[in-house]
């Protein structure tokens, strides 16, 4: 039984590391600010989620697991706030996202393809 938990925790930790690197690669590869935010949110959700779940399995039941769960909850509630504030600040500053398609029919003035990075 302990062997099973051990293997499961290693799998989770390796998955978390994988998604962390994927998010960071996306941060470098994506062409503009808005698309980079999508890449960063992969790290913020799946990377940290899988990694901390694996650490929970390593720690067993106790205060350490509870703290890890608190950290996860903190990220689940503050991550969207930061991303939303960042996106709103970008739009407010007049940064035009590069768009393949604009479905906001009420706002025709923002439909050009925007600035190149």
């Amino acid at each position: 039984m302990t062997q099973v938990i051990e293997i499961a925790s290693w799998v989770l930790i390796l998955l978390g590391s994988f998604f962390t690197i994927v998010g960071a690669v996306g941060l470098v590869r994506m062409p503009d600010v808005f698309t980079r935010m999508h890449a960063a949110s992969v790290t913020d959700t799946l990377g940290i989620g899988f990694l901390f779940l694996g650490l929970c399995l390593q720690a067993g039941i106790g205060l350490v697991t509870l703290k890890l769960v608190f950290l996860l909850a903190l990220f689940f509630f503050t991550g969207p706030v930061v991303t939303h504030a960042l996106a709103q600040a970008c739009l407010h500053e007049g940064l035009k996202p590069m768009l393949a398609e604009d479905r906001r029919n009420a706002r025709p003035e923002a439909s050009d393809d925007g600035r190149q990075p």
Binding site: V22, V25, V42, L99, A100
Partner: peptide
């Protein structure tokens, strides 16, 4: 939902051609 959509974003990031089509909507 998060796991499903994060997996699709991961596939886009690791795809060599970066097949994104950014869209804004209301």
């Amino acid at each position: 939902e998060i796991v499903k959509s994060a997996w699709s974003v991961t596939k886009i990031i690791l795809h060599p051609n970066l097949p994104i089509s950014p869209t804004m909507t209301v």
